[in-house]
Design a protein around this nucleic acid. Structure first.
Lengths: 204, 204
DNA sequence: ACCTGAACACCGTTCAAGT
DNA sequence: ACCTGAACACCGTTCAAGT
């Protein structure tokens, strides 16, 4: 049986979900696929590239543009979609975050977020920066949230004290940052002196 | 000659600046200090703790509260101070970011940022979330910026094409995110219907 | 084209034993 | 109290050689 790129990624995702990112090693992955470690290097040039491809798979649902109509709703929809995608896999946030930092990702989420930010009436250049800012927020928040879950589940925290990471309001906390971001976008979008459709006036 | 915690951190910082985070290994560090690898484990329980202490040293200048008077100015001052501290050492952003994620840091920057956000009139709980949001932004942006610098200097990019990371306007890009954030803080701080001193009205 | 075998040059961590 | 020696159980990557 021939080994394909997708088989490798399937195996990698299984190890990730079962044992976590620290245990996702080339040797372990090779063993689980019943091949020699060197075999993986025919399909991927190195481990970073493999992890990047895995990050892209985890972020796959970011390929679709936002369905909502308003700019605020689109931003919110995409941010939630990304967070949900990251939370769907053990260490998903850490993996995708690291892949973005090392530039071994296609950057689907980034593209989509920038598109949505464009809906606030910013120019290209500023929408790019705004989209990146949102990406940093979603990744940072979700890495933190997921790290907290791990600590909780491993019992590293004193009994009953999950100070920041009670799962009930993790979503509410996430949404606060989203409102903050949207408020910022609105304030940055409108020209210093009035004259925009639905947005309030700002003083310099 | 006795080995002290601070000697270990000095050595670690030298390796970090000279060779980067990937080459900062316990064995290499031990060699540079003329001790056996095991010696390090008398001073630090494990590598993560050592890196956390190093992150705290890099962030040391965040101990001092902001000197500026306005809330906006304080946030800006602290954000710049943190970014500057991270950029002062090779892979500084990556190291501090990882240490925050793994909770092996004292969280000086976090505390200071939350304090400054409090100046916008938010309640405790919201100021904490706002401070974290700002922390995510500064870390995310600076990791990205520093990673770009690395790629540039290693010549991994086609000649003359430093698409996002021309050092000239990296600071300007950073400040755009800051304005975005401050705008968001203002919009979140003011009660839904008018009645705040210097801030504009928002429609729900 | 795709993979194995075997090596190269490393890791972090532990722990008895020394001083 | 502080450190060495030596081991344990791993890593990522390369590459001649096989099919």
């Amino acid at each position: 049986m021939q080994l394909h790129k997708d088989d490798v990624l399937d195996g990698a995702l299984t190890i990730l979900d079962t044992f976590g990112l620290a245990d996702l090693t080339m040797r372990r992955l090779a063993t689980s696929l019943h091949v020699a470690p060197g075999a993986l290097y025919w399909h991927f040039p190195n481990k970073q590239a493999l992890l990047g491809a895995l990050a892209d798979r985890i972020s796959a649902r970011m390929a679709e543009p936002a369905a909502a109509t308003g700019a605020t709703e689109q931003v919110s929809e995409l941010a939630h979609r990304l967070r949900d995608a990251l939370l769907a896999h053990r260490d998903g946030a850490e993996l995708v975050s690291a892949s973005y930092a090392s530039r071994h990702t296609a950057g689907l989420a980034r593209e989509r977020l920038i598109e949505a930010v464009l809906g606030f009436g910013l120019r290209h250049h500023e929408a790019e920066l705004g989209g990146l800012t949102l990406l940093y927020y979603v990744l940072g928040h979700t890495v933190d949230e997921q790290a907290g879950m791990q600590l909780d589940s491993v019992g590293a925290l004193p009994d009953g004290v999950s100070p920041l990471f009670d799962t009930p309001d993790a979503t509410a906390r996430f949404e606060f940052g989203l409102r903050l971001f949207v408020g910022g976008l609105i304030s940055v979008a409108e020209p210093t002196t009035g004259a925009r459709v639905d947005a309030p006036a700002r003083n310099g």
